[in-house]
Each structure stands twice: as C-alpha cells, then as structure tokens.
Design a protein around this nucleic acid. Structure first.
Length: 254
DNA sequence: ATGGTCGGTAACCGA
C-alpha cells in the first residue's frame, strides 16, 4: 500500500504534473488539496484513463479536496457533524479497508486575525471528530496540507518564523493534541535528511534558496505504524515548470 | 528594505 498527499494549487493547471506523477509513483491513494475546481468541472475522465477513480469535494476559486484511488472509495464524508462550513476542506473515504482522511487545514493568514481564530476553531472541531473516527477505524490515515510546521527543525529559519503563522505555539499545540489521540507523524518514524520541507513560497526564489517549511503531513494510527516501511517528500515536481508551491509526501506500507 | 509570485477571476483576495 502506497499513499500520498499533495497540495496542487489548482488541479486544472497542475493536471499534467499529477498525471505524470501518478504514472511514475503509482500510489494506491493520492489525496489532493486546493483543487480549486467545482465538482462539475472535475477532470474525472483524464484520471480514469490514468487508472484512478476519484471522490471530491470542490468549490470555485478556493479550497477543494479530492481522493484518487486505484480501487473504489466508500463511505464518503465531506462535512463533520456540528461543523457548518461552506469551505471545502474535508474529505474522508474508505479505500481498500483503510480509512483515509484528506484535510486542507486553514492557512490562518496571520496570528491574531479572524482567519487565525477560524483555523484554531477548525482544528478543535476536527480533533473531536478524529477521536471518534479512530474508534470506528483502527486503520486510519489523516493526511493533507496541515499548514502547521510542527517543530523548529521543520522550518528553514526558526528565528524568523518564531510565533508566526504556521509556527505559532497554539497551532503546534493543536498538532500535538492530534498526535496524542494516537497518531504518529509518519515522516518522523524514519531517519530523514536535515532541512526536509514540503512547501516553498513562490516569492523570493524560495525553492531555489531552500527557504521551505514542512507543513504537509501523513498521520497514521498506531495499528499502521508497524507496517509502515518508508515516508518521504518528493521534491522533484516542485522544480518543474509552473509547479505547485507544495511537494507531494508519500508513505509506503507492507 | 515589510517587498516578492502565483491562481482564479476580472479589481483584488488568498496563500
């Protein structure tokens, strides 16, 4: 079983990269964020031709999540009980006996802003729901764009980012509270290169200068830890012409 | 030096 997550920043623009990457990596599951595509315009045909089924929860201009899979997805959820939110950021489905949760966590804009309050509130709601989801589905994967760099080693310049958005203590605390439910950060289950990042700002030549953050994550439930064999970030697509600002993250299981 | 670059959509907003 090979699973992956990728914030594509517009599926329409990135479809060629996604199709190339699917062909090369052949994941069983790929969770996408920021598809920015209404469901009616979802490129179902192109993905089917590549051998992938898709479930999705899209909206125009902003947000949008999708789960691509080789086998069919069941029990699809797009909204949480008690969380009324027009923003399409959540998608859960059962694939091949695995519960897969695809999240596009709010960015939060700036510490102290309305969007920041929304982010923390959202993280709290999802925390409560994940607690239940973990009871229902012992084999649970939660992956996506978390918009949180969990530790200073996940930040190219921790001093510059100190208590800034994506790095603030309340955000990191929320991440730790999720882990405390019984998840492991798959990436940290293995030795990794220093300065491993998954997102680089388009501005300031961020990628070329390695000015990145690790904000895209794969959380795995305890039951899956034993069978996890690898987790890595594939920086290759970030170097392509007209790239997403995020790189895909993959995890492999026996 | 508080900038810069994308994507979507049509003057800016969000990231």
């Amino acid at each position: 079983m090979k699973i992956a997550t990728w914030n594509v920043n517009s599926l329409r623009v990135r479809l060629p990269h996604v199709l190339d990457w699917l062909k090369r990596e052949q994941p069983d599951v790929l969770a996408l964020q920021e598809t920015k595509t209404e469901d009616a315009n979802f490129p179902q045909k192109e993905l089917e031709t590549a051998g992938y089924q898709a479930v999705y929860s899209g909206q125009k201009t902003y947000n949008g999540v999708a789960i691509l899979s080789r086998t069919s997805a069941a029990d699809v959820i797009t909204d949480l009980p008690g969380l009324v939110d027009p923003q399409r950021r959540i998608l859960a489905a059962t694939v091949n006996g695995w519960r897969v949760v695809d999240l596009y966590v709010p960015n939060g804009s700036e510490v102290g802003s309305d969007k920041y309050a929304y982010k923390l509130d959202w993280l709290g709601h999802v925390h409560s729901w994940l607690k239940l989801e973990l009871l229902r589905h012992p084999r649970l994967v939660v992956m996506g764009d978390f918009n949180i760099a969990p530790e200073d080693r996940d930040v190219h310049d921790p001093m510059a980012w100190n208590e800034k958005i994506l790095c603030s203590t309340p955000e990191r605390q929320a991440f730790q509270e999720w882990l405390a439910l019984g998840f492991k950060d798959a990436f940290r289950c293995f030795d990794q290169p220093e300065k491993s990042f998954s997102w680089w700002d388009y501005r300031m030549n961020g990628f070329r200068r390695h000015l990145g953050l690790r904000i895209d994550h794969i959380l795995i439930s305890s039951q899956l830890v034993e069978s996890c064999r690898a987790c890595r970030i594939d920086v290759e697509p970030r170097g392509l012409e007209r790239p997403s600002d995020h790189a895909p993250v993959l995890a492999e299981f026996v």
